[in-house]
Design a binder for these strands. Structure first.
Lengths: 365, 365
DNA sequence: ATGAAAGCGCTAACAA
DNA sequence: TTGTTAGCGCTTTCAT
């Protein structure tokens, strides 16, 4: 009658280990299977059985162990890989994901990436955890790698514009966003425009094989970079790109150095808002303002709309993107097999950080 | 020889399920135990055994299932409960925790709390997940509840100044911080100072029993509120508290309404920086500046130091607090049994958002 | 409608 | 040093 291994623990006042399904079954005088059915709301339980069991559950304050359940079926855990926890846009994505998960039985485990080449490890550790699905934010691994991963487990990639039959993608319209930025700056009369972008934009993709290089153009910062260059050339202007770390303070010092040059730009187009905020720091501390150098960001984080900051930026709602990613993942888990690509519209929010290009050479001095 | 249930799957080209420890054992021609020892770096494996097994592991690209391991021992998962994902200070704590976990086998699952009374559920869902430890950020549950939880699983509470024998705490010196704020404002000549704090500061603790009310004074916002009131009374001034939602935009509209009153305050002491940023929005949009109304925040989030914002705030490093919490948790897991309370020093960072109180009644009109 | 029993993949005694 | 075996707590056929 007694489950083997449970012995007669009545003897010593042993540490009252958490109740198991067997304990509940014993207390209610039914089988484990019966209890299992009750807690899963499965078909085929009589009302009296149900109430007996529920009483025992309450009395023992029994809680099913998630790990044990995960051995048979889903772990009810989703994983999210995130490169830079200090980037507000990225945390907005996480927030959107978290909010969408409220009310579902799913929880989210966060796998931060310390260095680009560690991305694979982060994703792998999520896979080891038997998560039911993975959200990867602009992961810096090759497509073949992702294909292999998504072959075993549902994956949605945020940011990259890949077209895979295995995984889904959610991305902002980076070409359009960048076009809007450049058009705006050109309208304002700027011609000396520097693009401030993150250091590893060039090596954003960890290649599996050399041909993979060609695909690197699908990473958001790479696209913004490319479109910026195209637009400049189209106007007969010389593109100028400044690489920096992904951190606000690093961006600040890069920008400060830029402004100290003999012929500083009249506008800075930052690859994301974190970099833009850093650029804004540099501008302010150089005693300059929008009339001297315009700054445009990308992402439209919360701070961009703050009246004291008023950063012109491309709005791509991080929370919406995160929410969408979760939705796609849940669909996949529910059985969808065809892959889907979502491209979110983006809009330039014009604010006070951009102004007409200063006249040049009008006055002597 | 063959493990029961594994049958002779050589027949059909069945979906190549992930390799198990048994598959590795078979491939290497050794026992499961041997493989287990190898992957755990346990004592007692000969070099040739090790290399044979490792070859098989590589060949099958075998990965141990975390869930299966968690059934016997630790899950190598830590949980963190967080009330407001949109509050940058709170996400800094998460970041600090994440960073400290790098290089350890632990991962973090995030349990967001949607409403104060849902806190218990969030914590419970972490416990169900068999996490090895829980970090709770100013959880709004009674002490008895926490005691019960920490009785079964290591817990460290961030923010609250409880003294428990069961769980550890990490908190900033809220009395000291608030004292510094008030002294600064008094020094500047302010007397009409409004305290802007979050709505549920009053009901921050979900009481188990009525006497628990007395303990609510241990929650950070409650302490700041209390000290503010004490300080005002000590100077013979009438405290004025304005309650608002925890969100920046809600704080903005509350502050806007405050500024529209007949006799608006000359200074606003916000309970945290998110509220302060909202207040700053209201001030700026009313066409006012520090000369009209000073704003002080609490937490010193990244934005506070931005030259365009320049918010005077109490510095309590979120990342350091998060890191400390993880450290304590890991210690507990490693065996420590006595509880420890850490109180972090805090420092007021005086910046441009505070200025001398405007003269009053000097000029008519 | 209910229960018996066989696993899920892994670890940890205990033998050999 | 290596292998055997008994579970960990739960779900799930398959009988009854």
């Amino acid at each position: 009658m007694v489950h083997p291994g449970h012995g007669d623990s009545t003897s010593l006042g042993a540490a009252p280990r958490n109740a198991t399904i067997q304990d509940v079954a014993d207390a209610a005088g039914v089988s484990r299977a019966a209890v299992s059915k009750v807690i899963r709301n499965a078909y085929g339980v009589s009302p009296q059985m149900r109430s007996k069991v529920e009483a025992a559950i309450a009395q023992l304050s029994y809680r099913p162990r998630v790990a044990a359940r995960a051995m048979r079926g889903p772990s009810h855990t989703l994983g999210i890989e995130i490169a830079q926890v200090s980037n507000e846009f990225l945390t907005m994505i996480v927030r959107g994901a978290l909010e969408t998960l409220v009310g579902t039985p799913y929880q989210l485990v966060v796998a931060p990436v310390t260095a680009p080449h560690e991305t694979g490890n982060a994703l792998q550790s999520l896979a080891d955890r038997q998560v039911d699905g993975i959200i990867a934010i602009s992961p810096m691994v090759g497509e073949a790698w992702l294909e292999a991963l998504s072959d075993r487990i549902p994956v949605v990639i945020i940011g990259r514009h890949d077209v895979s039959t295995h995984y889904d993608t959610v991305a902002g319209a980076d070409r359009s966003g960048t076009d809007q930025v450049m058009a705006h700056l050109f309208d304002l009369g700027h011609s000396r425009i520097t693009h401030l972008t993150i250091d590893n934009a060039r090596e954003h993709i960890l290649v599996d094989d050399p041909t993979d290089w060609q695909r690197s153009g699908r990473e958001p910062h790479a696209i913004r970079h490319t479109v910026y260059t195209e637009q400049m050339r189209r106007r007969g202007l010389e593109p100028e790109v400044l690489y920096t770390g992904g951190d606000e303070l690093e961006a600040q010092s890069s920008a400060a150095e830029l402004l100290a040059r003999r012929e500083p730009p009249t506008a800075i187009f930052a690859g994301n808002d974190t970099l833009a905020m850093g650029a804004l720091r540099a501008v302010a501390e150089a005693g300059l303002g929008p009339a001297d150098v315009s700054v445009v960001g990308y992402d439209d984080i919360t701070m961009a709309s703050h009246p004291l900051v008023s950063l012109t930026s491309v709005d791509q709602s991080g929370t919406r993107i995160g929410a969408e990613a979760v939705r796609l993942l849940l669909e996949r888990i529910a059985g969808r097999t065809e892959s889907v690509q979502v491209e979110e519209q983006v809009h330039l929010r014009v604010r006070g950080s951009t102004a007409p290009a200063p006249h040049r050479g009008t006055t002597t001095e």
